[in-house]
Design a protein around this nucleic acid. Structure first.
Lengths: 410, 410
DNA sequence: AAGAATTTGTTGTGCGGGTGGACAGAACGA
DNA sequence: TCGTTCTGTCCACCCGCACAACAAATTCTT
């Protein structure tokens, strides 16, 4: 019975049961990287023997391996429970975090372990195929030392823009100046491979990663607000990603903020982004326009907030109030350059929020920094690429690519 | 494998499979009121024999009964499929739509059939126990002719205010002037019964009802924007209700709209509600303040829009643009007095929306009137009360109350 | 009008998968 | 050292769905 997926009105046959249980078990192990069989039985509410059978299948698939029980976790008498750990040569994915000025690529295994990483600057105003080639080069670099036994399940790409859910088309990435780019196809073509590629918005993936292994573990209603150059948000409600009809949910940057405000590139006036976006902040702190993409580093150079920045903090808080009223999250995670801003004007942000949010949603919400630092989007990209494994481990592994290094070399 | 519920990381055993399949089958029949076994097999992807077994169980529970196949639906050769219809004496619920000036109570069966209904005015500024007594009287009226065999599964109550998800406490109902009222308990006490009671916000229930049997059938991402006295929204995303951490999600009335605008009762300035709320509109059309609760009727009396109303329509559209940007719904349903307004200034609303929303979310969204008229919230209340039947029909029926009429009389 | 074709209901059998009990193994505590 | 406690393994068992064969009820074809 299900959990993760949202099937419409399908019935369940027993083969689906097996799939689901195997996937759920793997998801649990993935969440912590290592887990005892005893914990799994109580978490999943299944019989010891059933868990044993599932674990055996996972081992025979080469996904997990038997581990000695964690030494410190002993808590009483009884036979110690054998550990279930992610196999060293287990399946892995390629995660790509496409930023406005640099791309980070990593090979990531189950459990969210970054096995290898590489990065390179992205030329300003680069064509999609150029960026695709550069990303493909990074991918080659990153799979160089991959063990031949480790199958590649897929590629996940984080994009600073709006991505269509149905096919992963990049509809609009304003800061890359891309319209309707099929970046997944471009990367695959540059690699000469055919593996599943998933693309999603960076804020959405930040939310996903923070929910899975960051500050949002166990928090089923959270929002990740990301300041890159524009402002976006990733929303998780009831433990599920909020995607919307086309996949564009979370465009908080164009919330109406001040109808008399400055014109926004979207054509309106006084969007939230015109007050708290990177360009606005850069202007407020007299930062040169060519440094806007590195706004977080510039902000980290400040040791005390200027009055302008305090006003910006308040504006952030006021905008967050609208968001909190709309979504009633338990957690708001401030990513991107909002991380740096929070260090400087955290109290102003909080005060702006407290001042404008309704009492009921306000009482349960908490403002925090990302638990994964600047890797949120990257690890979120890994998560969507790994997702098929949790839906159906056998099928996902069947579709995976073995010995990627050789294939890329040849 | 699951669908409706969102269990955390539980495993599935076969008894859960049976529960789920039985519940899902019932949900399908509930959706249309009548359905052929052949349709059920293809919809649920299960074997003919399995469906036959499930249907037999449903019949033995007294929930469904065999029906002659619908005459017109024949489409080709082959033996006609026997129908599965909701039993006449099947389980039912009490639905309560608590408005700011009147309460509507109905006995509703599966399939959304309103079997009996009654309504009464609610005194302005009435205490919760007074309103509770009046609702209890309506409930007695409505179960008067209920067949003894028909078990009462529960009571669902639609509330014009913020309802805490965990326990159904009414945190704040501004137009009833209630704070922290346990209205469910009050009604049960007045009835001297003990049945499951569910409470939820009226806009949330409007969204639910429109999704189940209104204009939103088959649309998994929709928003029901309701103008009662304040403005609220119910959100369904990915086929699931958006509730938020406390259950307060969808408070769109207090979106920041114009920071230089009029003061709002929430303490801020220029909330959307101060522009498009009932009080603002009443003022714009010079409607006497004591008629605000019947604003829809007043508006229905207009046959052409005044310039003030056109401006209001534009403001509604502008606010909807923020909502559409945030949620990316496929459908926006205009409920409450927005229904009447849409008749008058529909083009202005649409123009305001088109003018301010981002292209990507705009291209897939559609603005409509409710398919259930003013009964959306009432039928939504019935839906949440019926919900346990779809999760576990056997258990829900076991907990249901038989021969309610006799119990209420005694 | 009668037989063929088609689709569905019914029945019995088989299989997959989770359950539960019995037993053995491994640590802890007295 | 021995009892306690908890876990892993193996077994028979039950439950629920799938599948195949047959019967029933229509429509289509000739």
């Amino acid at each position: 019975m299900g959990a993760q997926q949202r099937r419409s009105g399908l019935g369940t046959n027993q083969e689906a049961v097996r799939r689901h249980n195997l996937g759920t078990l793997l998801r649990h192990v993935h969440g912590t990287g290592q887990m005892s069989r005893a914990e799994l039985t109580s978490l999943m509410g299944l019989n010891r023997s059933t868990i044993a059978g599932l674990v055996a299948e996972l081992e025979s698939l080469g996904i997990s391996e038997r581990a000695t029980p964690a030494g410190g976790a002993r808590q009483g008498a009884g036979r110690p429970s054998a550990g279930v750990a992610i196999a060293a040569d287990g399946p892995c994915v390629i995660a790509v975090d496409l930023g406005v000025d640099r791309a980070v690529v990593a090979r990531v295994g189950l459990g969210g372990r970054v096995l290898q990483r590489a990065q390179a600057p992205v030329p300003v105003g680069g064509e999609a195929w150029q960026v695709g080639a550069s990303v493909a080069a990074l991918i080659r670099e990153v799979v160089e030392d991959a063990p031949a036994a480790s199958p590649l399940v897929g590629i996940g790409i984080s994009v600073p823009g709006m991505v269509r859910r149905s096919d992963g088309l990049i509809r609009l990435a304003p800061n890359l100046e891309w319209h309707d780019v099929s970046f997944g196809g471009i990367v695959l073509a540059a690699l000469g491979l055919d593996v599943p590629v998933s693309l999603a918005n960076d804020a959405d993936l930040g939310a996903l990663a923070e929910h899975t292994r960051g500050v949002g573990v166990g928090v089923d209603d959270l929002i990740y607000v990301s300041g890159q150059v524009g402002v976006g948000a990733g929303v998780i409600m009831g433990g599920h990603r909020l995607e919307g009809a086309g996949g564009y949910a979370g465009e908080v940057g164009h919330l109406r903020f001040d109808p008399g405000g400055r014109p926004c590139h979207c054509g309106n006036r006084g969007c939230w982004e015109t007050e708290v976006g990177a360009h606005a902040i850069a202007e407020a702190i007299h930062c040169p326009p060519d440094k806007v993409a590195q706004l977080d580093e510039v902000l980290d150079g400040f040791d005390s907030p200027s009055p302008e920045l305090c006003r910006t903090g308040t504006a952030i808080g006021h905008g967050l109030a609208s968001i909190v009223n709309m979504f009633n999250p338990r957690l708001v995670v401030l990513g991107g350059y909002f991380r740096s801003l929070h260090q400087l004007v955290g109290p102003d942000i909080q005060a702006g929020l407290s001042d404008r949010a309704l009492p009921a949603p306000l009482e349960s919400v908490r403002l925090t920094l990302p638990g994964l630092g600047s890797d949120s989007a990257l690890l979120g990209a890994a998560e969507i690429a790994l997702e098929p494994l949790f839906v159906d481990p056998v099928a996902a592994l069947g579709a995976a690519l073995v010995d990627v290094r050789a294939r890329l070399a040849g």
